[in-house]
């Protein structure tokens, strides 16, 4: 682990943000709190996706599979089999990890190209959606409704949106820090090597399979856990939201807008776009449904055409120019 990781961990900016953010549930009206929670969910999801999509440079469209497993399976286990949701969280995360390892193995074994990888993961995501829609145990097309959140921590209940906020804040910070850690660890170095030239990496003896599986599994486990927490917050396990490729596409777009492959880029993209989208939906959703997605699309196209590296490099330049710029700048890797 390079010292940059500990620098970020010890950074006053990080702790400052956390301390400032902690009392937000008491300050914000519930509508804005909801937007903040959603933003944190997507910060966590985009950051978890970034490990495969950004650092390893493979556009995986299977992320909804892991989010959906975490959400739908843990809910089904609770409702249908009475399994405690903490246990359900672990079971779903384990199954997500297995699915992820399988996909990474397929990718390695069959030496899928970029396009093939996109398509295979999309096919798996579609298949996952179909399985959920067609299998009553997982709620079928109508979804599952969780019991009311009464705040029993041991039952994976956090007392509504206040608790959900802290849980999501924790998960978002963990996901971002995992990104920072990987970028500054040998794994990040190997992933970059594989991304830039997989054949060369194989030739110099990099254990490509190991690192691909590691990246995919870490990414999937994080996504699955966030999925479980997210569904607890939503209370309603909606298959069309949680295990549809659309959620992956959103995540990919957030990460792209922020800046792929860097530790903070995907988080930045989600923090900018989710509130924008939610406010648009709140204000104009009744008149113009879909407006926020429309705007996401426009923003991502504009960002790709104008600054293909994402917005983070722009922000960094501003950050560096501030008076007394110090060495707290995160390590970034251009995609």
């Amino acid at each position: 682990m390079r010292p940059e990781f500990y620098k970020v961990l010890a950074s006053p900016v990080l702790w400052g943000i956390l301390i400032l953010a902690a009392p937000l549930p008491f300050l914000l009206p519930s509508y804005y709190l909801h937007i903040v929670i959603l933003s944190l969910v997507y910060v966590a999801l985009a950051s978890s996706w970034n490990i495969v999509g950004g650092m390893a440079g493979q556009i995986s469209l299977a992320h909804s599979l892991f989010i959906g497993t975490g959400a739908m399976l843990s809910t089904a286990l609770l409702l249908k089999l009475g399994i405690n949701m903490w246990v359900g969280l672990l079971i779903s995360a384990a199954i997500s990890a297995m699915l992820a390892a399988m996909i990474a193995w397929i990718d390695y074994r069959f030496r899928l190209g970029h396009l093939s990888f996109v398509l295979i993961t999309l096919a798996f995501a579609e298949m996952g959606g179909l399985v959920v829609e067609g299998w009553d145990f997982l709620g079928g097309a109508s979804g599952l409704l969780l019991p009311r959140d009464t705040g029993h921590f041991l039952d994976f209940q956090f007392g509504g949106s206040h608790g959900a906020f802290w849980v999501m804040l924790l998960l978002a910070v963990v996901c971002v820090l995992v990104n920072v850690a990987i970028l500054n660890a040998p794994l990040g170095y190997y992933l970059r090597t594989i991304r830039d030239n997989e054949n060369a990496a194989r030739a110099i003896g990099v254990n490509v399979l190991r690192y691909k599986v590691a990246a995919m599994v870490i990414s999937a486990v994080l996504a699955s856990i966030v999925g479980t927490a997210y569904v607890r917050y939503l209370t309603f396990a909606d298959p069309y939201l949680l295990i549809s490729p659309v959620i992956t596409i959103e995540i990919v777009l957030f990460a792209t807008v922020g800046g792929l492959g860097s530790a903070f880029g995907p988080a930045l993209g989600a923090l900018l776009l989710v509130p924008l989208g939610e406010i648009l939906r709140g204000q104009l959703g009744g008149v113009l449904p879909g407006l926020h997605y429309f705007i996401y699309g426009i923003v991502v196209i504009a960002v790709i055409l104008i600054t293909p590296q994402g917005l983070l490099p722009l922000f960094e330049r501003l950050w560096k120019r501030r008076p007394g710029a110090a060495a707290t700048r995160p390590p970034t890797v251009a995609p």
């Binding site: 429309f294 996401y296 991502v300 790709i304």
Partner: peptide, 8 residues
């Protein structure tokens, strides 16, 4: 990514 944006 661009065509995904276009899709949205």
């Amino acid at each position: 990514q661009l065509t995904l944006g276009l899709s949205l």
